[in-house]
Design a protein around this nucleic acid. Structure first.
Lengths: 267, 267
DNA sequence: ACAATAGTGTCTGTTAGACAGTATCGC
DNA sequence: GCGATACTGTCTAACAGACACTATTGT
């Protein structure tokens, strides 16, 4: 086959799949929809759908996100300039999955996106979706997954998205994407603890985040909370990269080994 | 449109594009091929081509890499298990580009892969490629790019690949992918200096890399070099992640700001 | 001897991690 | 007062960066 012959190329379907993460009740949760059709009818799956013929990839992801959660996307720095501020979720491309038989009906290449959102009232089912739910990631991926598993290769995609979120809050200010517009240092710490699944020392955490220039901007206000000294309120500062980074405890112990960088099994 | 209707979906072409990087003469170089056909006839472009109907994405990337450089790929940890050891380049998925009009003829979604290779004798043109060349990245991306630019959005893809390589050698042992099987600490240092474009202190570099367990394995041999004490030879150890990481000088100065995490403009 | 590269030791400033201690709320 | 959370200060071990010094080659 000649390179780029416009008439002779194998036809593919291209979809987007969304790993939408939030923190609820101190645990990291992912958004799932229940499939109404075959294959994997009745299974839980990641939200997603076809990319339209005249639509960019991230626009398709933002559209699907809005259709199923009514969240407006806030694209990552270099990704797209089409959003209004408002209540936005962070949205970035994750990885593309295209094993020949990942969809039993036809050849589908799926571009996965990662969205990080603050805790939402509760998701309303949108277009062509029966039911929607937030599921703790731990139940979907850990040892004790009682579920039957997710549709397609969505368990792998979810795992990759979770790993991306876990590593990205180390060296970027992205953890604030999980917080409401104004938040306290304690709330931000609970975000880190939930995403990493590890307790952090409140004193050192406080010193670290308040000492990183550009990470947090004090708003002047304070919170009244049940039982405890009122806390200062902050909003996200302009910084996107954290240097030095937040260090994740148990960072592979002695310092090397064979931890995965891209844990995907896509092809 | 109903979700996942196997008959009603917009047809896409899916390609892979390769950012193949190596270090020659102390500068980071990328592999380019000259386009023989329209559009962008005569322009330099990244190697790439159509994904076959029954072929995985990384298999397509490895096939194209071999067709155009005769390099066998060595996939990153989680990506695929189909390679023999041998003289392999590191290969990992970079990012997917799918803006509606990035190819003027039709809707093409391109999955870009990043390959890191040791310095090669010289590339021989392979299938359906007129000429191949290694071009210093600095000339393709920096201020002083005299060229007419690359075909399609390949300049953006190249920039993303270079940025990925630059950041990944910080926290992984991937710099050894640029080295021959046996190498000295000085050679490894020149890799870092070429990729980052910064001089490093030889003494501190030596202490750092030899002190990181699992990074380097001494082979026992030494090199005879012109003018200088012979150096110990090493091969890559089993470690994949470096903890603590190698620190890139001028790491954004005071520690925050607005550096891009994904500098792409894909959609 | 001299240039050149390899490799070691030493000092200093910064920071992560541990944790004592103080501040300010609800009860 | 007491529990709880917010915040500040202090100590120590580890490490990055700077750089003096020694080692071993070719010319």
């Amino acid at each position: 086959m000649s390179r780029y012959d416009p008439t002779a190329f194998p036809p593919f379907a291209v979809t987007v799949d969304l790993v939408v993460l939030t923190v609820r009740d101190n645990s990291l949760c992912a958004l799932l929809v229940r499939r109404a059709e075959e294959p994997f009818q009745g299974f839980w799956a990641l939200p997603g759908g076809f990319v339209r013929a005249d639509e960019g990839l991230i626009e398709a992801a933002a559209r699907k996100l809005y259709e199923e959660t009514f969240l407006r996307a806030q694209a990552a720095p270099g990704q797209e300039p089409d959003q209004r501020p408002g209540t936005g979720a962070h949205l970035e491309q994750l990885r593309t999955y295209g094993k020949p038989l990942r969809d039993p009906r036809m050849r589908v290449v799926s571009v996965a996106y990662l969205a990080l959102a603050p805790d939402l009232p509760t998701p309303r089912p949108g277009l062509d979706v029966n039911s929607v739910r937030w599921a703790p990631v731990e139940e979907l991926l850990g040892e004790k997954k009682g579920d039957q598993g997710l549709a397609f290769d969505h368990e792998q995609i979810l795992a990759d998205g979770v790993e991306r979120a876990r590593s990205k809050i180390e060296y970027s200010a992205l953890a604030t994407a999980f917080c409401p517009e104004e938040f306290t240092v304690g709330e931000l710490r609970r975000i880190y603890e939930a995403v990493w699944g590890t307790p952090l020392d409140p004193r050192n955490f406080h010193r670290k985040v308040t000492g990183t220039p550009g990470f947090l901007l004090p708003t002047g206000g304070t919170t009244t909370r049940q039982g405890g000294r009122p806390a200062q309120l902050f909003r996200a500062g302009g910084a996107t990269v954290l240097n030095p980074p937040m260090l994740r405890p148990d960072n592979s112990g002695s310092g090397n080994g064979s931890a995965a960088s891209g844990s995907g099994n896509a092809s």
